[in-house]
Amino acid sequence: MILSLLFALADPAALPGFYVGNQMELAAAIELEPDGRFAYALDYGAVSETAEGSWKVTGETVVLTIDKSQGAGPGPSLASTPLAIAGTTLRLERHGRAILFQREGELAVPPNRNSKLDRK
């Protein structure tokens, strides 16, 4: 089953969807449309950036072509930093951090969940 998920995500037809990358002090999202368009947003400390354009799969990466962007922080352009396809996760190295995007609806329950809140 896991192997079939890996093959499914590597298939460009399986990639479209809405992905979130919420981590401590960071909020990010990218939407990959089936027609090859994308929208991206990142808030990290003093950096807020957005971009949109087109995407394509090259090997084990998603390569972005930027049509419009706003607020890009210092460092390399988003277009020069492809997203690595890592199992069911998209990984982006941005602003010195690894941002792990997971498709919305596939987010894991936090391991430190307080079960006492489940009392009825």
Rank of each mutant, 00 (worst) to 15 (best):
M1G: 14
I2H: 14
L5W: 08
L5R: 04
L5C: 03
F7Q: 14
F7L: 12
F7T: 15
A8P: 00
A8W: 15
A8H: 11
L9G: 00
L9W: 01
D11Q: 11
P12S: 12
P12D: 10
A14R: 06
P16F: 14
F18M: 12
Y19N: 02
V20R: 15
G21D: 08
Q23R: 13
Q23V: 05
Q23S: 11
E25N: 07
E25T: 10
E25V: 06
A27M: 07
A28I: 12
A28E: 09
I30L: 13
I30K: 04
E31I: 06
L32C: 01
P34I: 03
R37Y: 01
A39F: 12
Y40K: 05
Y40V: 00
A41E: 07
L42E: 03
L42F: 03
D43L: 01
Y44N: 08
V47H: 00
V47T: 09
S48P: 00
T50E: 14
E52G: 13
E52K: 13
G53D: 03
W55K: 06
W55V: 02
W55N: 01
W55M: 06
K56D: 09
K56S: 13
K56M: 13
V57P: 03
T58I: 12
T58Y: 15
T61L: 10
T61Y: 14
V62H: 11
V62K: 05
D67R: 09
K68Y: 07
S69Y: 01
S69L: 07
G71W: 05
G71D: 10
G71V: 12
G71R: 13
A72S: 10
A72T: 10
G73M: 06
P74C: 04
P74V: 00
G75Y: 07
P76M: 14
P76D: 15
P76V: 12
P76N: 15
S77R: 08
S77Y: 04
S77C: 04
S77L: 12
P82F: 03
P82E: 08
T88L: 04
T89F: 06
L90E: 03
R91I: 10
R91T: 08
L92R: 02
L92M: 07
E93Q: 12
R94N: 09
R94T: 11
H95P: 03
R97K: 15
A98C: 08
A98W: 00
I99E: 00
L100G: 04
L100E: 13
F101I: 01
F101G: 00
Q102S: 07
Q102L: 07
R103G: 01
E104A: 15
G105F: 02
E106Q: 05
L107N: 08
A108Y: 00
P111E: 15
N112S: 05
N112A: 09
N112I: 06
R113M: 03
R113N: 03
R113E: 04
R113H: 06
N114V: 09
S115N: 07
S115W: 13
S115M: 13
K116Y: 04
K116C: 01
D118C: 04
D118S: 07
R119T: 14
R119D: 14
K120Q: 11
